[in-house]
């Protein structure tokens, strides 16, 4: 009974555990957005894709009994919406930020519309790997319950990091994102590459959504996402378009989000709104500290309008 009383250590464990639990959707969405932005386009609609992924993943998992099939379908539905964004933005004079906002509305609306029958039923959830087996502490055991998608996300971050530097595809995406002229001169179709990158980004964001509904918190309802998809877009800028930094930023953001509840659990209950806003303040602070009008952001794709000072 006494060894349950871990006080301040509990906060640390809660923050680490929270970082692992909460960061996965941020990780997937920000990696997806990273890929899209590297190709020179921005997709603000990933929030809509995330919600659509959460709904479709949950629905399919419930109907088929297989959570992994749910994850796949979530990715595919994200891919469809991503392609739609890619196609529309490929038309002349269509603004990608505005289209993204439209997609956010459309994806969210469609998910709510189609998702009504899945609010009540209980779908099977994704399994977790108990990395805390070595510890006798139930807290550590719980904190180190790691979902496979989290590990896949880390692997993906490393893979993207490597692929951007060392593969032909990575080079093509970066070239298209840095200079459409150069890409044209090299014979790449700028439009095709961007559409594919947007579709792939949508796929990842859809998977991020399925994590919310199929693992943590692990159910589908309309208030499931509190803007994770939108924040993930901010995290990409913050992460300087580097996949590994996206991972770090997601962990940091997830951990900061766990701080508020953790402090309250030991009795520090005043100012909880302010604690809960910690991730946003942190993100804004770092953006202010690292931005400058004197130079373009390191790593920023040259074709990306949004970071223009």
């Amino acid at each position: 009974m006494d060894n349950n009383d871990i006080g301040m250590w509990g906060i640390l464990i809660a923050v680490i555990g929270g970082a692992i639990r909460v960061s996965t959707p941020f990780l997937f969405v920000s990696l997806g957005e990273c890929l899209t932005e590297k190709s020179g386009r921005i997709n603000l609609g990933l929030e809509g894709i995330l919600v659509m992924g959460a709904m479709s993943g949950y629905g399919i998992a419930y109907l088929t009994g297989s959570p992994w099939l749910g994850v796949l379908v979530a990715g595919l539905s994200g891919c469809v919406l991503g392609s739609l964004h890619g196609f529309i933005c490929g038309l002349p004079r269509v603004n990608d930020i505005a289209t993204g906002i439209g997609l956010m509305l459309f994806g969210t609306g469609l998910a709510f519309f189609l998702g009504k029958p899945f609010v009540q039923p209980k779908a099977p959830s994704l399994p977790a790997i108990p990395f805390g087996f070595w510890s006798s502490s139930p807290q550590i055991k719980a904190a180190l319950q790691v979902n496979v998608l989290f590990l896949l996300g880390i692997a993906l971050a490393f893979a993207m990091h490597w692929a951007f530097r060392n593969t032909r595809w990575g080079l093509i995406v970066r070239t298209v994102g840095d200079s459409a002229d150069a890409a044209l001169a090299m014979g790449f179709s700028v439009r095709t590459v961007r559409t594919l990158a947007t579709a792939a980004g949508g796929f990842l964001a859809g998977i991020g959504g399925s994590f919310l509904s199929l693992y943590y918190p692990g159910s589908w309802n309309e208030s499931l996402s509190s803007g994770q998809g939108l924040m993930a877009v901010a995290l990409v800028i913050f992460a300087r378009w580097r996949p590994l930094y996206c991972f770090g930023a997601s962990l940091l953001f997830g951990g900061a989000g766990a701080l508020g509840p953790a402090l309250q659990s030991v009795g520090i209950t005043s100012g909880y709104y302010l604690f809960n806003a910690a991730p946003y303040v942190l993100t804004l602070g770092i953006m202010i500290a690292t931005s400058s009008t004197k130079h373009s952001l390191a790593g920023a794709p040259g074709e990306l309008g949004v970071i223009r000072a």
Binding site: N4, G17, R21, Q139, L212, P217, P261, T269
Partner: peptide, 25 residues
């Protein structure tokens, strides 16, 4: 032990609050 989430419906925060409480024993 009480945790106020500040919102009537915010699933991720509610899940985090539950985990934090359980972490405290």
């Amino acid at each position: 032990r009480v945790i106020f989430t500040g919102e009537w419906s915010m699933p991720v925060k509610e899940a985090e609050a539950t985990n934090s409480l359980l972490d405290q024993g």
